[in-house]
Write a protein that binds this DNA or RNA. Structure first.
Lengths: 234, 234
DNA sequence: ACTCAGGTTTGACACCGATTAAATTCATGA
DNA sequence: TCATGAATTTAATCGGTGTCAAACCTGAGT
């Protein structure tokens, strides 16, 4: 009944975490993709999904994919909350850098308990986002809505503030960090070359050209002002 | 070959940890006691011991007990080091109290990696003892020798400094903490009632009477001065 | 020397999370 | 409509960690 009291082991928690993130867009998570994310074979994932379905944690439609049940969502959000709080903690208290924290948080997220989670939350000052900008679910299992939008689908000239660097690739994160492209930084979309070409953006410091795949992970909150002046204010 | 690269899972690490501590006194660790410490049945422990022996981590003499191989010792000391460093960290950085840290450290000790261990070691200032006074093995797998001795086997009148409260019972630790009986405190053995009776000790603040089982876990370093004057210096 | 109790191991089994290989389903284009 | 290829599931199996019940050692006392 209460998810905290269930004996959910690490494997289960990792599956739920992955399924949650994959089914964010409304589409169920498919076996192959789940398997790939977890580094297991599709057949292994398939068997595990059946087990999770039996435990009423996922809603499984054979050959179609899996979504989480309300139960499963609750558990997944708890793990995600712990992961993101840990990331904040690892940077803020332990001095790690933002491209290093994901792997440590991943190892720790399934072993800490409620008391530990609360302690971290307190020490870090009840953060609402992880260092990369992902929203931290609340303690009672709600994922707050945010106005983040993809930079690359904005009209050219859009100015805003980076809210999230939506990737877990350490190399990408390190690169973004070197460029100063991190949550809080101001950014203006200058141009996008056609067919997934280079994306040029301007920060307060410099103009940067990024490959499309990189640019795609930048989420921003556009400035409220309707102005879209792409050039620097004289 | 290198223990760090072996795939040693959590169960294995916990077994080695327990066996190490049980065989401290020279006697091999017996199946029943190992099982009890780990909360499994003796048959389960027996099977696991055979597996550990096959992996060359323990030296198993059937019906007699188990000791660790050099390999096993190395792994055990690494886990113990992590446990004790974590305890220091949990108190010093995270604000837990000394009777709370064992369970958290236990959960974390098997999932952190070398990088994380080093980070904690650095942050906490390279401590040599855990909050309860147990010695922290060195990074390269050596358990430093210490001059700690049991208070209750000292002659009446012995004065010294508490070096270790050798128990993991949270209630006991909390009680010792309330009394100010913790590593660093000065203590004098005043009397021991016969047949495991009450033990009376004096600190700089007060005179305390403890049950024998409690008193037994106090390890001290006796003052160098040969003096054993049991009464307060006038 | 023998018995007996406690400690220990073995046997038979179960569950979990994987694997590989084979079978199955599904969507789609000819 | 039907064949095809990709995605998915099933079947058979494995290793790890446990259980219970039964068999087995071992040492201490008569």
């Amino acid at each position: 009944m209460n998810p905290e009291t269930q004996d959910l082991n690490q494997a289960t928690l990792h599956y739920l975490d992955v399924i949650y993130r994959l089914s964010q867009g409304g589409e169920p998570a498919t076996t192959n993709v789940i398997a790939e994310r977890l580094g297991v074979t599709p057949s292994g994932a398939s068997i595990m999904l059946r087990r999770l379905a039996r435990r009423k944690l996922v809603q499984l439609t054979p050959y179609k994919g899996a979504t989480l049940t309300p139960q499963g969502i609750k558990v997944a959000l708890r793990t995600i909350r712990r992961h993101r709080l840990l990331e904040v903690f690892l940077i803020q208290v332990m001095g790690f850098r933002w491209h290093e924290v994901d792997k440590h948080a991943h190892a720790l997220e399934t072993v800490i308990d409620q008391e530990f989670e609360d302690r971290i939350d307190e020490i870090t000052g009840h953060p609402t986002r992880c260092p990369h900008g992902h929203v931290i679910p609340t303690r009672d299992g709600v994922m707050p809505a945010v106005p983040d939008v993809k930079l690359v689908i904005q009209p050219i000239g859009t100015a805003g503030v980076i809210r999230c660097i939506d990737t877990d690739k350490p190399e990408w994160l390190e690169y973004f960090g070197q460029l100063g492209l991190m949550p809080g930084a101001s950014i203006t979309l200058k141009s996008i070359a056609p067919y997934g070409g280079a994306v040029t953006v301007a920060t307060s410091e410099q103009t940067i050209t990024l490959g499309y795949p990189l640019a795609e992970v930048i989420l921003i909150e556009p400035d409220r002002t309707g102005d879209t002046t792409p050039t620097q204010s004289a």
